[in-house]
Design a protein around this nucleic acid. Sequence first.
DNA 1: AATCTTTCCTGCCGGC
DNA 2: TGCCGGCAGGAAAGAT
Length: 274
Amino acid sequence: MPELPEVETIRRGLSGHVPGRRLVGVIARRGDLRLPIPIQELQAHAVGREITGLGRRGKYLILDLSGVAVILHLGMSGVLRLLPTATPPQAHDHVDFLLSDGLCLRFHDPRRFGVVAWGGAHPEQHPLLAALGPEPLTRAFSGPVLVRALAGRSAGIRSLVMDNRVVVGVGNIYASESLFRAGLHPARPGGTLTPRQCGSVARAIKAVLQAAIDQGGTTLRDFQHHDGKPGYFAQSLQVYGREGLPCLHCGHPIKRLRQGGRGAFFCPHCQPEP
DNA sequence: AATCTTTCCTGCCGGC
DNA sequence: TGCCGGCAGGAAAGAT
């Protein structure tokens, strides 16, 4: 499930525990996730270094190791937990980053759509990160930026805000929630939004993501914090997963549209047909 | 048994 | 005609 708020929640939770410790070993129990695990680079250039910080770019976590970096992505089902190294590994515990003081950062990912990549000295130039669009919670993302990104586009606005080149970090849940708040139908062609509506969408994305971070993310099934606790934004969802239930604003039943193979939830009254 | 979070790839289409 | 980009849909693995 992890979208930006869930990844940010993990980052914040680990930031109080991981930086300052040394990486003393790496265990990879299989050779690949979505991509090969760069075990040789990790052993040769990462082990022995102190962890100096934990960053985030979109849905990617960046483990800073005094001058080099490891890039992590949780995919659809990834969980990163901080455990005593002695904890016996369970099914789908694919990678352990062994830390000083007997702790271990353990990457668990049943569906294996996650990624462990070698970022080297300039992780921002890694192919996974180089082409990413603006961070939604910074000034790099705004109504005017969205106006330019949507110009001439005929794809549905929901697909476009989920496009990492337009803005990073917005997945299926928060796309549906943001468009509900902005009052726009998910299939509305992106290029037909007025500048005012682009501003509205940009503000809605920022507000929804920030609210979700404040509540520790959305736990539906897989997501959990680094210490195993859930997030509480699920109870704030207005449309996602609420097909057939009354809109919390107007009472009309929430509908679901099939878009890009996934469900786009919306209120047919608050978000009228384009 | 169909669903379901992400990302990448393929095939089709229209424009030039 | 050939190329390019945009767009929609599918594939990947596993739990429920």
